[in-house]
Design a protein around this nucleic acid. Sequence first.
DNA 1: CAGTTTCGGTCAGAAAGCGTACCAAACGCC
DNA 2: GGCGTTTGGTACGCTTTCTGACCGAAACTG
Lengths: 238, 238
Amino acid sequence: MSPLTQSAVYNRLLRSLSVEDFNLLSPNLEAVKLDLRFVLAPPNQPIKHVYFLESGLGSVVATAADGTRLEVGIFGRDGMSGTSLLLGADQTPYDTFVQLAGSALRLKATDLDRALHERASLRTFLLKFVQVFAVQTAYTAVANGSYTIEERLARWLLMCHDRVDGDDLALTHDFLAIMLAVRRAGVTVATQVLEGDGIIRAKRGLITVLDRRRLEDVASGSYGIPEAEYARLIGPLN
Amino acid sequence: MSPLTQSAVYNRLLRSLSVEDFNLLSPNLEAVKLDLRFVLAPPNQPIKHVYFLESGLGSVVATAADGTRLEVGIFGRDGMSGTSLLLGADQTPYDTFVQLAGSALRLKATDLDRALHERASLRTFLLKFVQVFAVQTAYTAVANGSYTIEERLARWLLMCHDRVDGDDLALTHDFLAIMLAVRRAGVTVATQVLEGDGIIRAKRGLITVLDRRRLEDVASGSYGIPEAEYARLIGPLN
DNA sequence: CAGTTTCGGTCAGAAAGCGTACCAAACGCC
DNA sequence: GGCGTTTGGTACGCTTTCTGACCGAAACTG
């Protein structure tokens, strides 16, 4: 494989690193394909790799003691999996998996650890992403507590749309239902409303964003703050 | 003021620090009283101090773009305010304030920064609390999305109970309503149910936990995982 | 291309929770 | 001890969402 050039990388974090930090990581970065549902980090087991997504989407899902499952965060080429390693936790109660197939550059946890000790600036930078991701989780809590299914669906579609190329999102209602912690039938109804307004187009297993502006109106207060935090601490998403 | 002895400190984080780390911080720790509603960290403004709580409770509340407010985290002598400073963010969109009066040892943000650069072990340790707090936020998202008012009230009372001495919690229904993002009347009803079962006793502005075991049953799956994470990464809460 | 699986649309009945409002009891202050 | 304020109990109608189920359409499989 030819050596990795920083400017040829799509991942926003890797791209924003200083040249020195990037060069420290790059010999250990391994390009991998990400199939749908591939596990990026298993729950309650040591995390072996962190994945810097180049394309596709990853999802962090929390499972409660009684089996209830609910998404608490989402990331694409703006982020990475396994952020708990940056905080000194080798494992988490979460399940992190691929939600939209794509590709990534991965790094062994041990290589990451070594690099973090070698260069403080690398840690400082990556911790900013941890902060942004924590804010995203906090606003997921707000959305779950205070917004309707339609508003939450709009928020979620916007977050996906931010992280992929083009306007097509290959998602089933069943999948969305888990993400939003609602019934599948609830997703179907909300989808129909948005489609009826001409904001999205829905086909089997595919949602196309037609009018992003109006999608933001529907999401109203539930969207925007974590995104602003990303821009402030890390840089523009696109 | 007499010099601070580590063993005389109630805060679990300060207490668990290595002697060297503690001694680095202690000359700059200032004891302060915390009145109800005192602002520990203002939203969207630089954080000037971090507070290690000795008693009382602090609450982290997120505000959405449309003004919706909802609690995303709670801490007492198990934690500290201003954790975003550890992640390199000088401010957050959250409002952090005192929810149950008490006292704290506070540290100037600049002193914290200096100490973090001086001793890596201090940063490593405090970051573990950031991880635990993030998990708590994630499970707040789960609770808001999937549990009834009664279950969420039980969870919340348990989290408070974990962090105070005794079984009395000085809380109004109005306050609880904001914390849980429900109507005040909804809290009243849920409180009555728990009281009817003999699990708590409610008086004006005061809830007394009578039967913690059964409170855990009511909270069912919504309680426990963040608490286990605290125990695993930091130590026993009590 | 026939069989099987997955996905999405739909419905009736029920529950949870909300908006709003009113009133009484408890408390704090002079 | 009287007065104003805070807090809590209660009610009604309405919206949202759920439970649980059924069925047809689309996509995949061999």
